[in-house]
Each structure stands twice: as C-alpha cells, then as structure tokens.
Amino acid sequence: MASPSRSVGATTWPVTLATVLVLIFLLLPTLIVIPVSFGSQKYLQFPPEQWSLTWYRAFFADREWLAATRLSIMVAGLSTILATLVAVPATLAFARGRLMGQGLARALILAPMILPHIVVAVGMYIAFSRWNLIGTLPGFVVAHAILTLPFLFLTLSAAISKLDPSLELAAASLGAGRVAAFRYITLPLLMPAIAGGMAFAFITSLDEATVSNFLSSSTSKTLMKKMFEDIDFDVSPIVAAVSTLIIVGSLLLIGAAQLVRHASQRAPKSAATPLPVARSAMKTA
C-alpha cells in the first residue's frame, strides 16, 4: 500500500516544535564539552579564544590519567569476556533447557540492572574490602561482569527467540548431536548478536561510574573514578579532553557494532537485535 501522504503521517507543529526543543536539550549539553576541550586557558571557556590541543597533550603526559585509562580498558575487556562466557550458556539454558526455579534465576540475572546501583556499589564495597578486592583487577572485572550480565542476557535472549528452533531439529535429523548443532548452527547465527552485545558491554563497563567509584583505591582507580575526583576537586579542562575522547571512542565502537549488525542482517535468519534501551538502565545511576 502506498504510504498516506497526509493526516496520519503528518504531525502538528506544536509537537514538532516540542520535539526540536527537547532534542536540543538532549544533545547540546552533551556536545558542549567538545569545543571546550580545545581551549587553552586554565578555566573553562566557550567558545575558546584560542583553539589548541593543550589539554590533550596534558592528558597524554599525565601518568595518573594514562594508568586510569589503561586500567579501565583492561577491566572493560576482561569483564566483557567474563560476562559473555557466563551469559551465552545461561541464555541457552533458558531458551532451550528445562530449569527448576527458572523465574528466580531470571530475576537474579536481571537484578543488577534493576536494583539501585548505589546499593550494589556499597554492598560490594563492604564485601570486597573484607576480601581484599578493593582496587584490584579481579574485583573490578567481577563487579562489571555482574553489571553487564543482565544486558547481555536480554540481548542474547531476544536474538535466540528469533532463531527458528526447527533449524536445530533439522541439524539433529541430519545427524548432528547437541554439541555439533550448537557449534555449526546456533552459534554462527547468534554471532552478530554476541558481537554486538559485547561491544555494548565493553562501553557500559568503560562508562560505569557508581560501582567503580566505590571499588577504586587511592592507587588503583578507573578512568571514571579519576574523572569523578577531578570534577569534584578542581574542574580542569583536561576532563573536557577526556570526555571528548570517550564520546568519540564510544561512538566509533557503536558505529562499528551497528555496521556488524547491518551486514549480518543481510544474511537471512541471523538474529541481530536492536539494543538501546536495556543499556540505558545499565549505565545510569
């Protein structure tokens, strides 16, 4: 059917105006840090009188910033891998298996997404102090894996529910065992969703601030903790430079993930899913 050209498609001007204003409200405060980061003065300026890379140089010359960046990337990478390794089998168990207490298990997996992050952070802080995990790589990795798990789980569940179960039956009828069917049929079809989910999990970990804030020590802190301290104590434009780098890096990674999804969607029957919303719950608080 041809798309109707009026009445239903059109929106009225007050709604359009409201939309434009809200979008400006959403976008502008986010992007304002970019021009600010290219200033040269000690205090924040907009627009900068003189454009320079002063604060980027300062960032790359600062040992503490670089250490925090390195730690965050390590934590993001390792926690993404850990979360994926536990999320994929768990998703399969829910989608294809028979579980006792399924509802409870589900609630447990989704809980880190729904429960207040401050409570999770404080709980982990108190427990991890006892176990000497504060400021340690395993501590960060485990915490972030738990925080990204519900999100990976939802993404993968959506993807697996779109797979045609008769494909696995067909594989079985052709002589494939459980493992072979997974290896040659299910896993390849889930690959785009797994890859996309991992990219988003990586950024989620990188951006995670609340729990990192509590699990960092004075000598070992993530990038977000370092930013938090810098913002809290003295608002130096170096934070604007870091922010810009984070924005650009995140968008590049997401762009790449979208490309992977797009390419895979052309292949018939692969189960790529849109993911934005679950993530919002992850990254806030």
Partner: peptide, 13 residues
C-alpha cells in the same frame, strides 16, 4: 487501485 481508493478516502491528495 489502492492509491485510487486512498484518494477517494482522502488519505492521498
């Protein structure tokens, strides 16, 4: 044919 009907209905000008 559908476009013609939509034109009569007023969904297409």
């Amino acid at each position: 044919k559908t476009t013609l009907l939509m034109t009569v209905a007023g969904f297409e000008i």
